[in-house]
Amino acid sequence: MSCFQGPSSLKRKRPELKSPAQSLTEHERILYDVIRSKQDIGIWTRDVKKEAKLPDNVVNKSLKALLVKNLIKEVVNIQNKGRKHFMATEFEPSKEISGGTWYLEGSLDREFIEALKQLCKEQIRLSGVATLEEVTDSINRRQAFNVGMTKQQIEEIMRTLVLDNAIMEVKSNGMGEFASIPFGKVCYKRIGKGGLRGEPKAEAGALASIPCGVCPRISYCTPDGIISPKTCVYFKKWLDF
């Protein structure tokens, strides 16, 4: 599970001193140099072929050999998952290729994101109002993950929580609950006192509470039509006490 692995940038390996690169054929050497020159960006197969100026079959064969010798690796490029992307094994994919902290093997690491969101939300719930720095420090102090989170990463999480309407972004007025926060500083505040365990109580809008509010066939619904409130299956389900 990724949340115990931490951000990939911290796992970056140093280039090995004794490389098996010495035992390479000429073609393999050319390809390896091309791929290695791209560092943590890596390169798409078609671009390898273009740059190396070698026949397709030679390139394919040599790439396989390099993979077997563990000199290169195939990585997922989140910008285009369908393309075969190669990188020298000594590098870890850059943020542009891997998607950054939030991605694991080319997919959004939802589990990690959700765990972090819960922690941040919990922190805001406990403190009522907190600055970004306070939340970051608190998360890092807990050591729930084996690596520290940066302020920027926590900011991204907080921004999502604001979009989720789980917390509010406000500016401190330096008074009352904001007394410990300098005037004008952006901070995050919990929404209401909450129901059980401080979670916001669910309160759907008036239209969203009834079947018609979310009905995909509302435009076909008429009083005496084939789809009508009298014959509506959603109504039937809703009123089935």
Binding site: I191, E199, P200, A202, E203, A204, A208, Y234, K237
Partner: peptide
């Protein structure tokens, strides 16, 4: 001061919390 969201999804989930409320 207390806002929404729980639930989600589509019609199948309609009979969730709000309806019960």
């Amino acid at each position: 001061s207390h806002n929404i969201p729980t639930g989600g999804g589509w019609w199948n989930e309609i009979e969730t919390q709000d309806v019960h409320t």
